[in-house]
């Protein structure tokens, strides 16, 4: 209060930008550690998907290698939508999104905070799924090139997903809306990720894989820049 206040006026917006991003990431991680809602839902779902593929396809060892990239990215993409939906639903539950929007920071800081949280949850899910997949399908997935593709693909996926989840959460049919909006937009990232992953798994020449990696990096940069520019309009009433 005016009489009782200790020096508590906001600092300049520039100095608050990184603090705001780290505050959102910290808040999401603490809340997730307590509730374990997002990661456990994503994990259970992704394990079910790879189990279903394992039994449904009944593949020989040669074919397994060729379908691995597709199965992995289908699993990550479907499980990822659960995490994205939950991440924004938490913000909508008690109008917490309004609380974020009322903060005196550039609204892109909110986007980056949420995107980093979503990426962290997705990477945790992937780190757990990969060894289980390796055991189930008897394929070594600990290939540095593949891990790089997974990182780049996940960055692109969460960059687009966070933006579209912010849009979808404001609609009445938000759970249905996100996959409908997300998958057509994220398709180029998924195609590039599957092609690059497949290349690394089959031991293809790096010159054949490089165009797909470049495409992934380009999409990541484009979608992050686009989200930075339009997030303010997306969350507007």
């Amino acid at each position: 209060m005016a009489e009782q206040s200790i020096t508590s006026k906001p600092q300049s917006l520039k100095s608050s930008y990184w603090k705001a991003i780290s505050a959102i990431v910290w808040k999401d991680l603490v809340a997730e550690l307590r509730s374990r809602e997002s990661i456990s839902a994503m994990l259970v779902f992704s394990l079910l998907v790879i189990l279903i593929f394992n039994f449904a396809l009944e593949l020989d060892i040669g074919t397994r290698r060729t379908v691995t990239a597709g199965v992995l990215w289908s699993t990550f993409a479907f499980a990822g939508t659960l995490g994205l939906n939950r991440s924004m639903a938490v913000e909508k539950e008690r109008d917490c999104l309004d609380g974020l929007l009322l903060s005196p920071v550039d609204r892109s800081a909110i986007y980056f905070g949420k995107a980093i949280s979503n990426l962290t949850f997705m990477l945790i899910m992937e780190v757990i799924v990969l060894p289980i997949y390796s055991v189930l399908y008897n394929i070594n997935l600990f290939n540095p090139g593949l891990l790089l593709v997974i990182l780049l693909g996940s960055i692109g996926y969460t960059a687009v997903g966070t933006l579209l989840a912010s849009m979808a959460v404001q609609t009445r049919t938000r759970d249905l809306m996100l996959p409908i909006l997300l998958f057509p937009v994220v398709l180029p990232i998924l195609i590039a990720a599957v092609k690059a992953s497949s290349g690394f798994l089959s031991g293809a020449n790096i010159n054949d894989i490089f165009p797909w990696l470049r495409l992934l990096i380009a999409y990541d940069v484009i979608f992050i820049a686009l989200a930075f520019m339009v997030f303010d309009y997306v969350v507007e009433e």
Binding site: R34, S35, V90, R94, D95, C96, D98, L102
Partner: peptide, 17 residues
Amino acid sequence: RGLIGVVSHMSLLYNDL
């Protein structure tokens, strides 16, 4: 936004914190 404080119908608080 730095100059205003808002109390609305909803709490704007996080249940798991």
